[in-house]
Design a protein around this nucleic acid. Structure first.
Lengths: 342, 342
DNA sequence: CCCGGCAATGTATGCGCATACATCAATGCT
DNA sequence: AGCATTGATGTATGCGCATACATTGCCGGG
């Protein structure tokens, strides 16, 4: 495996150690260690010799040994439901960009919205002794919570808020966001509502909050179309098709758990010659990049996913720096963006 | 940090070790090690006591120490250009699902299509002594290649093919895929072509191959619209708008570097009352989930991203098992999917 | 001229585990 | 009965580094 090489001086199989580098530079292992981690503590001449030796041997520090010795791994565990879901991947991207700048690397696992998988992943990750862990959501199995508490490392839970985080959380109120959408729909005079919801708990909480608000206002019952775990344009189209077949009442607004569904509804409406928002109004969720470019543009709930990931990273960094008391609950909010579709 | 606890017996700060578990179970450290890694070598009674002790203490194995002692980390490094890009995230998902089943965990970094960032990420990852590494693309800096070869671990490069992989590669021919699209366009009678291309090297190779084929057939020159790094529906719309302003010739086909662009062109065409494929034909790339649900459905090049990730994982697993000679180059192919848009 | 202080380097140690090897008792075989 | 074999466990060791502490030489002030 990777056996070509040969063109290099450095073709050992057993990897180079600090001690070998030191031997070559005429110093001890510890001086090499210092030269790499705090060069100002080593004389310029020695530093030069050590750097030469490093280059000559192709030395790559063994961070495993370093982590064992120092009990700081510079690794962050990150658990997301799904990396193919732009919600999570884009906030993870912002999160890991900041962490990388600080010299941390990311160990990633997907949980598939499954608490059992999450629990297994937490156990696996904790055995690597990460310096911190990022979780998605605030609901975890009892065993998971126990492991996290015992680990004694900073923990940040993202995307949801709770009064009782394991350590701290960064998110927004799903309920408040959905209620804001309901209020907008009511204020705009829509009197019939349908929810189109993906099969995950966060989306369902929004659905329920939207429906409750709408029905409390005396306009109900809200019809619910619950779909599978993945939010696709095609499923959105089918949802509207189904709705039309069952008889679409004028003044109906459709509240979607993601912009993909909403977009599908727009496409299907266009294909059927229905006018949006006149014949059917649509509210999305997420404000994804295409939301401004649909026809009409999507009214949706914007979550600043970048900011969410950054806030999560910042929370951990603050904890590393020893400000554990700082804002255990951080609300990044949401923004209802009114465009053409509702 | 995570200081609540208290409700548990196990509220130490310095984490439990095998030796402590052993003390509690009345055996030595090594017996605990055996009980966990090969329980069949330990008597049932001892095993029971050890398991009790593990539960009682909330023992979490320290994989860092394990890795140092055994020089097997059960970690896989994975480098992708961008996790928010569904191309890479979905094949990464398939890749890591298989790896997880085999007991491996993933360390992830993004390279942003930047060889320098890639090189830095490779160095950082190799210091963690992963058991293998997955890279995207086959072009790497000289230093990166050297480090990879010196590391002496299996390396798999995905998404592209080359005769000279560092170790092995799994992908398809970008050029052949683009040429197939050009052939379809030519066979369908389109005589003018435009490319709409995102700012990354793989997309550009497809653009060039498409244009070359089209022009070689005597129909040129192919007009090129080169856009930024991210492929969005909005940019696709703008591309068509720009094209129309410059005077869209009848019988034009637009070859896009991604389905997002293609979708944007469909949306803009609809908004302008242009018929697809009559007034303008569109070929996408990727066969993303929405490609069947657009109006009309997208003609596109399908890449089986799942299969790609799985093949990459399989290649590594085979190498672990000691079949290093097996297919250093694995072509997963592509499929031209003809739907309504061209 | 002597001593305190600092800069530069070295020595010793252990992080928590896997692994090679040793021990010991029980068992089977001739 | 004697010996090899096997099962169950223990002892010793070191992976490669960080860290606490020790050492050495040099400089300047009193």
């Amino acid at each position: 495996m990777a056996e070509r090489s040969g063109n290099d001086e450095a073709l050992r199989r057993t990897s180079v150690t600090m001690a070998e580098v030191g031997r070559l530079a005429g110093v001890s292992q510890v001086t090499v260690s210092r030269a790499l981690s705090s060069p100002e503590k080593v004389s310029p001449e020695t530093l030069r010799r050590i750097r030469d030796a490093v280059n000559q041997t192709g030395y790559v520090p063994n961070a495993v040994a370093g982590a064992l010795a120092s009990s700081r791994s510079k690794l962050i565990a990150a658990l997301v439901p799904s990396i193919t879901n732009i919600f999570y991947s884009s906030s993870l991207q912002a999160f890991s960009d900041i962490m990388r700048e600080q010299g941390y690397q990311i160990m990633l696992s997907e949980t598939g919205f499954d608490p059992e998988r999450e629990e297994a992943a937490i156990a696996a990750h904790l055995s690597r002794r990460p310096d911190a862990i990022m979780l998605t959501g605030v609901r975890h199995s009892a065993a998971a919570r126990r492991m996290l508490l015992n680990a004694g490392i900073p923990v940040v839970e993202v995307w949801d808020l709770t009064e009782t985080p394991v350590d701290c959380c960064v998110g927004f109120s799903q309920g408040a966001a959905a209620e804001a959408a309901a209020d907008l729909a009511l204020a705009s005079g829509y009197r019939h509502a349908v929810t189109v919801t993906a099969g995950n708990e966060r989306a369902q909480r929004r659905r329920d909050a939207f429906a409750a608000r709408f029905e409390t206002a005396g306009h109900g019952p809200v019809e619910r179309i619950d779909l599978g775990p993945s939010a696709t344009l095609g499923l959105g189209r089918e949802a509207l098709a189904q709705l039309v077949e069952r008889g679409l009442r004028p003044g109906t607004v459709v509240f979607c758990s993601s912009d993909q569904f909403a977009h599908g509804i727009l496409v299907e409406a266009a294909a059927r010659g229905l006018a949006v928002p006149k014949d059917v109004a649509v509210i999305g969720f997420g404000d994804q990049d295409f939301a401004t470019a649909t026809e009409p543009a999507l009214t949706t709930i914007r979550i600043d996913r970048q900011a969410l990931g950054q806030a999560a990273a910042t929370a951990l960094i603050q904890r590393f720096a020893g400000f554990p008391g700082l804002d255990p609950v951080h609300d990044v909010g949401f923004e209802l963006v009114r465009r053409g579709s509702a």
